[in-house]
């Protein structure tokens, strides 16, 4: 379980997160929502040790984040940053093999190769495995990085805006893969998304931030309500029934 308390983060004089505390459920898709600059990415960065908070602590599976050994933690938790890229000459298969980095000492075993192959299959990147990542389209590259995160085989997978600049079918494809990870492999996926309808259709649990404060938190059904969403995004949002789902209209 991941919990954090009293998180304070400042960039220069500006406070981005004020006294944020929560303890998050496991084996769910947890969506972090909020407007631009609400502090979602910063919070995700602090949970995943990419950023140090000015105050407060993060606890992962009963241990404080700074008591974890770097490599041990990388077997339990991984994060995929916003639009990852590298100028180096790396093929898709080599990139996905990096997911096994914390688990091995250099040479990949049969078992490792099997996991890499599964990750390639799951994301449909098998046909592209010998292509260099800088020759792929934005969507394919994003998919390759997600395959790497899957191959790392961690209990917690954190994704910072993985749907950025992707078309609808690929966005839906990524969300379906995340659903499968939660259902079939009991992973916990934490994700920052801007499109509120993707949240409504795929997320189980929602953490809503506004102006660096954690305003609402709870099951998706209890958060996807017009009054709550309108407050978070400071704009009128109506919620309509669509089958047994809800759809948000804000245009």
């Amino acid at each position: 379980m991941i919990s954090f308390e009293g998180i304070l983060k400042k960039y220069g004089k500006e406070t981005v997160l004020k006294n944020v505390a929560a303890s998050l459920p496991t084996e769910k898709i947890i969506a972090f929502i909020g407007g631009n600059g609400a502090g979602k990415s910063t919070l995700l960065g602090i949970i995943s040790r990419l950023l140090d908070p000015n105050a407060g602590s993060v606890c992962i599976d009963g241990r404080m984040i700074n008591q974890w050994n770097c490599r041990e933690l990388a077997k339990h938790l991984t994060i995929l940053g916003q639009s990852p890229n590298s100028a180096a000459r790396i093929t898709v298969e080599e990139l996905v093999s990096f997911g096994r980095f914390p688990h091995t000492n250099g040479t990949l075993s049969e078992e490792d190769m099997k996991i890499v192959g599964e990750a390639l299959d799951m994301t449909g990147m098998q046909p592209f495995k010998n292509r260099f990542i800088d020759e792929l389209s934005g969507g394919q590259r994003q998919m390759a990085y997600i395959a790497m995160a899957i191959a790392q085989d961690t209990k917690y997978i954190l994704l910072d805006e993985p749907l950025n600049n992707l078309d609808m079918s690929r966005s839906a494809g990524i969300m379906k893969i995340l659903r499968r990870l939660v259902k079939e492999k009991s992973k916990t996926v934490m994700i920052v998304i801007h499109d509120i309808n993707f949240v409504s259709f795929y997320a189980d649990y929602i953490v809503a931030l506004k102006d660096g404060e954690l305003r609402y938190m709870g099951d998706a059904d209890s958060i996807i309500r017009p009054e709550i969403l309108s407050d978070i995004f400071s704009t009128d949002i109506s919620v309509e029934k669509f089958g047994d789902r809800k759809i948000c209209i804000y245009y």
Partner: peptide, 18 residues
């Protein structure tokens, strides 16, 4: 090996446990 992973950038290197 850590240098190989740092090629992916700071964030991804830390995520891989470097």
């Amino acid at each position: 090996r850590s240098l190989n992973a740092i090629v992916l950038g700071r964030r991804q290197a830390i995520a891989l446990g470097v």
